[in-house]
Amino acid sequence: MWQAIKSVLAAFLGVQKDERRREDFRSERPGTFIAAGLIVGVIFVLLVAFVAVMAAR
């Protein structure tokens, strides 16, 4: 799972090592990546919302 989250974070930045990408694609379970993507996505949205609320104070 930690591996998947790291890959998702790399995808958010748009930079990933080729060997890591190959490794990820060897994985048999896409569900882990989808779950990690959703979790990090929600956290990102909440983070932006929090910054916006703080800025509006």
């Binding site: 930045l13 748009g14 930079v15 990933q16 090592k17 080729d18």
Partner: peptide, 12 residues
């Protein structure tokens, strides 16, 4: 093919 640290710098 790639240079991860340079890519991170020009993104950051």
């Amino acid at each position: 093919h790639e240079h991860t640290s340079v890519e991170v710098i020009w993104t950051a």
